[in-house]
Simulated scan of single mutants.
Amino acid sequence: MLLAGFAVVGVRLLAHRYERTVSKEQLLAPDARQARTELETGLNYLIVGSDRRPDAPGPDQRSDTILIVHVPPGLREAYLISVPRDLLVAIPPDGVGYAGGQDKINAAYEHGGGGEGGTRLLSATLTRLTGIRFDGAALIDFAGFRRVIDLLGGIRMCVDTEVRSIHTGVLFPVGCQQMDGARALDYARQRYDLPNGDYDRQRHQQQMLRAMMDRAGETHLRTDPVQLDRVLRAVGNALTVDTNGVPLDDLLFALRSLPADALHGVQLPSYPQTINGISYVVLDNGGGGLFDAVRTDRLPDWSRANPRWVNRL
């Protein structure tokens, strides 16, 4: 979605430079992959965000952010559906060593070994839960996105509830303010001491992506090839992608008419629940028809009928 925001500087040039820097992996499990992607139809992408690179060693590689991006037919708007990382789900076996079981959905990334394997297991888990097959996936290194935001000159974020970072101790006062990469990412990770906890964190992450697209459209990268190259390399270094066989220039060209103000944030109908002393999030009424609306390209109608679960970005 961020790459689509760069269409204003020349889609074909962007795709050519991006092709040389981005990592490409098989991020989708076979049963989670759309058999064939047709760009003129509705599209569904899985976005997984983590502070660890795919090849980072060590245990506890959990996904900090899970987004389903739905682009309805016509490709003129997009819906960012945040999946709560504490959502209680049935994780299938990975076929390697993990036998499967009930757990929080962000644990699927860890059980799959993180990186490519973790994203595949996470995609299989989501398809089993939602029935949605994906046209592609991206694994985002949010730490790498700090440099992207800094190269863009920072982004403008509007804080609606004062909160102090549990990571750095920085206070985020109420009001719209310019943030550099470190500050923006720190703010988007906060969930404690916010009225709606992790739901507020999800909304802030959606707002950060919208702000990055806004800023990308405002900059004059077309007239500054050196800066353009730096931004494209930073974007490429922060992403691992699976486009389901679609050439990058075809995908970006198809999304060229998608403006930042056409992004809509959606929360998964759900509620927190403590089970055996552990905090989870559970689906409200099986997702309240959201998954069916995505599968049948009726998400705009669903959003109008369910404003409670729609975020203003």
Results as ranks from 00 to 15, higher is better:
Ala184Pro: 01
Gly153His: 01
Ala188Lys: 00
Gln61Arg: 09
Tyr79Leu: 10
Leu263Gln: 01
Arg120Met: 14
Asp193Val: 05
Leu221Tyr: 12
Gly277Leu: 14
Pro259Gly: 14
Leu88Val: 14
Val226Trp: 05
Thr243Leu: 11
Leu221Glu: 07
Tyr18Ile: 00
Cys158Val: 15
Leu88Thr: 14
Thr296Ala: 11
Gly217Leu: 10
Glu162Tyr: 06
Thr240Ile: 05
Pro173Gln: 10
Gln207Ala: 07
Arg215Asn: 06
Asp229Ser: 10
Ala305Phe: 12
Ala143Tyr: 14
Thr125Ser: 14
Gly236Asp: 03
Gly286Tyr: 15
Arg85Ser: 13
Ser165Ala: 08
Val310Gly: 04
Asp150Arg: 09
Asp242Thr: 04
Arg133Phe: 03
Val231Pro: 01
Asp261Leu: 06
Gly277Ala: 15
Leu75Asp: 08
Gln102Trp: 11
His167Glu: 02
Phe291Trp: 15
Ala188Met: 00
Thr219Met: 09
Trp302Arg: 12
Thr274Trp: 01
Gly154Asp: 01
Ala78Leu: 03
Gly42Lys: 06
Val11Leu: 07
Thr127Gly: 01
His264Ile: 01
Gly217Ser: 13
Leu313Lys: 04
Leu255Tyr: 02
Ala234Ser: 11
Gln61Glu: 11
Gly118Val: 04
Gly236Glu: 00
Gly265Cys: 08
Arg298Ile: 00
Leu43Phe: 14
Glu218Val: 06
Gly114Pro: 03
Phe134Cys: 12
Asp249Cys: 02
Arg203Gln: 13
Thr37Met: 13
Gly236Trp: 00
Ala4Gln: 00
His264Pro: 00
Asp160Met: 09
Phe134Thr: 13
Asp186Tyr: 03
Arg222Asn: 07
Arg298Ser: 09
Arg233Trp: 02
Arg164Gln: 13
His70Ile: 08
Tyr18Asn: 00
Ala15Arg: 06
Pro93Lys: 13
Asp150Asn: 14
Arg62Glu: 07
Arg215Leu: 03
Ala29Phe: 09
Gln202Asp: 07
Leu27Arg: 05
